[in-house]
Structures are given as structure tokens and as C-alpha cells.
Amino acid sequence: MSRFPLADRLAKLPPYLFAAIDKAKAEVQARGVDIISLGIGDPDLPTPDFIIEALHRGAKNPENHRYPSYVGMKSFRQAVADWFPKRFNGVTLDPDTEIVSLIGSKEGIAHFPLAYINPGDLALVCTPNYPVYPVAVDFAGGKVEYVPLTAENNYLPDLEAISADSWKKAKMIFINFPNNPTSAMADRAFFERLVEKAREYNVIIVSDAAYVDVYFDPANKPLSILEIDGAREVAIEFHSLSKPFNMTGWRIGMAVGNESLIQGLGKIKENVDSGIFQAVQEAGIAALEQGEAVLDANRAIYMERRDAVVDALGKAGIDCLIPQAALYVWGTVPKGFTSAEFATDLLQKTGVVVTPGSGFGIHGEGFFRISLTVPTDRLKEAVSRIASL
């Protein structure tokens, strides 16, 4: 059989974190072990009926059976523009120039560096991090400098610790708040300083806001970077309908912000994809227009799950960050284990899947991530098994 070597950009990649977890999980499951998977942040709650019904209506419309626009239907972009100022303190967007639809936010984030990174260009990545950020930079031929997120700094990057030379060289900086994997939130003062730095050094802010509507205190809602004065000059923000509306499999999101950055991403997209099925966009419109009650209900469920996990971990003597947002609990690995050893031992001996912190970069070593995406009773059972290890 002929063998064809992979391109260098693929050959040097580590296995994709969640694909590796799925493989290990399947091997243990084949032994008949009761698996409780807390590894991937994939909501177990069903997509609401009114969204499914909107898809059904749209799918029966022959006009939706042809190629869609790569930038998204005007009606979908208008729905985003209508939703945004209601959620983010009056921030207005032009649906024609400041919004582009995405086949899930992951697709947009992965493609964005191709529009602005030349071979050898520098990107700053705050870490622990969603694995797609450095991979996307690498695929564009860029170089990555990691900016650590530490407990001592409330998992916010120390912007003053980034050298002036790095700021001068950087084309972009990737941030993610509420954060995956730590669940940390960023306050207005941090965003204001970040925008100030980005404007000073002409650095693009790439803000991943996938979890911005999964929060637990209505008096402390996560911010959009676009709420900050001057951010529109330097920032693009990525949003997803996956987590708030239980639509991970539907693959629909959007990028918003600086007009030229949206156009740059659009130039890539018009050459590599053909847009979102229009019936899915119509379902997305229904989610944005009618979904507030769903969001409230989901938040209540995730808060109950969060409280159960934090309480059980505390009783087991395992330290963790109490999340104010997102779908995750970030715990400290017990002494005597690396994060990968702990996750492997836990899976093999108890059937519980957690994500090792090292999978999110070297600054995730010593931690593990629990996803709040199974029912409360299963979460309690999982933590009971963790405590028994």
C-alpha cells in the first residue's frame, strides 16, 4: 500500500486533546465499565423545541436548499445586531459590515489568523487555552508566545509582564473570558487596560466569547470587549449559539467587531466555505429572538450542578475555583500525580473522564477540568468516585 507523508504542519501537531480522550474512553467502555464523561463541554440538555420547529419550517422551504451566502443571511445578521445591544449595554453593530456568520465559532477562530498572520509573525496566546488558538497561528506560519494565566492573578494575563518588544512584534492577542478551562471572568478594568495596550501597539484583540451567556450572577454578567471605549478600533469577538442554546451539533456562530477585521475574515471564508445552511440560520434567529427564558433555565441547572460539584470536591479535600461563569470546574490535582497521570488513573480505575489541565498548555499542569454537562446525580457519583481514588 502506498504511504503518503503528512504535511509538516500536521505531522508536528500533538493529538487533538478531545479526540485522544474519546479514544481512551472507548477502550475503557469496551471493558463494560460505567463511564461518566466529564471531559468535553458538550451540553446534555436538548435543543429547545421552538428552535427545532424553526429548523423544520426552514428545511421545507426550497429557497433554503441552495448555496447560502458565506457571510450569512441578512436576516440572521440583523437578528444578531438586534440582540447585541440588549445583552451588551447598548453596543450597536452594523449588520452589513460588522457581523459575519460562522459555521461555529471554532471555524472562525481557526480561519482568522490566515487573514492577518504572515510566516514568522507573532501572536500572543493567553494560557491555559482552548487548543485551537496556537494551532490556527501555526497553520498560518506564525509564532506563538504564551502569556500565563495564574491563580495568583485571578487567571487574568499580566499585561505589564509582556515585554515591550513582544507587544511591538505581536500581530494579535487571543483572550477567552469567561475562560475555558478555568471559568475565570475578566472585569472592566482588565478590558480597558487591554484595549489601551492594543491601541498603543496596534495589536488585534481576538476575543473568544463562547461562554458569555453562561453565568450565575445576573448582577455580574460577563462583558463584551466591544463595551469598552476604543475596542472597536482593534477587536474582533467570536460568539456561538452552541453553549447557551444547547446547539453544539448545529454549528452556528458569528464574529462581530472591527469592520476591516470582519472583512478580512470574510475574504478567507469566501474562499474556503459556502456558509451555514439557511434553515439553521433561521433556527438561530429564533434562538436569539425568543431564547431568554431558555438561557435563564439553563443557568439555573448549571448553577445547581456547579454547587454540587464544588461542595463534593471540598468534602473530598480537593481544591477548586468556584466558577462565576462557563461550564467548567477547575480543580487541583492531588499530590503525587501529574494532571495526565491523574486523568488516566481516574479513567482506568473509576470510569470517570476528566480533562487533564496539561492538555490546555503547560500552565494547566497540576489541574484538571470537570464539565458540568451531565445530570446532578451523575456529577455527585463522579466526584464520589474521584474521592475514592
Score class of each variant (00 low, 15 high):
S2W: 09
F4I: 14
F4T: 15
A7L: 12
D8F: 14
L13Y: 09
P14A: 07
P15H: 14
F18I: 13
A20T: 03
Q29L: 09
A30W: 03
G32W: 09
S37Q: 02
P43K: 00
D49A: 13
D49Q: 13
I52R: 11
A54H: 05
H56S: 12
N64P: 06
R66F: 15
Y70T: 09
M73P: 02
P85Y: 12
N89S: 11
N89Y: 01
N89R: 14
T92W: 01
L93S: 04
D96I: 10
T97N: 08
I99P: 03
V100N: 07
V100F: 03
G104Y: 01
A110E: 14
H111A: 12
F112H: 05
P113E: 00
N118T: 04
G120M: 00
L122S: 04
V125I: 12
T127Q: 14
T127G: 07
P131W: 00
P131E: 06
A136I: 05
D138I: 09
F139M: 13
V144F: 08
E145H: 14
L149D: 05
A151H: 14
E152R: 09
N153G: 12
L159S: 07
E160N: 13
D165Y: 12
W167L: 10
W167P: 04
K168E: 15
K169L: 09
I173G: 08
I173M: 13
F177Y: 15
P178V: 08
N180I: 14
A184L: 08
A186S: 07
A189S: 13
A189P: 00
F190Q: 09
R193M: 07
A198R: 08
R199V: 04
E200H: 03
N202H: 14
S207G: 07
V212H: 07
D213W: 04
P218Y: 07
P218I: 10
P218S: 11
N220F: 13
K221F: 04
P222N: 10
I225A: 09
L226F: 06
D229S: 09
G230F: 06
F238G: 09
F238D: 13
H239T: 02
S240G: 02
S242D: 11
N246G: 02
V256C: 05
G257T: 07
N258C: 11
N258Y: 05
L261K: 01
K267V: 02
K269F: 10
D273F: 04
D273L: 06
S274C: 15
S274T: 15
I276E: 08
Q278N: 15
A279R: 07
Q281N: 12
Q281R: 06
A283Q: 08
G284T: 01
G284C: 01
A287E: 02
E289S: 08
E292M: 06
A293H: 10
N298R: 13
R299T: 00
I301C: 00
Y302A: 01
E304L: 07
V309E: 05
D311F: 02
A312L: 08
K315L: 01
P323H: 12
A325V: 03
W330G: 02
V333Y: 05
K335F: 07
K335V: 12
G336S: 00
A343M: 04
A343E: 03
T350C: 03
G351H: 07
V353F: 02
V354S: 03
P356Y: 06
H363M: 14
F367R: 11
T373Q: 06
D377Q: 14
R378F: 01
R378K: 14
L379F: 01
A382W: 00
S384Y: 06
R385E: 02
I386Q: 01
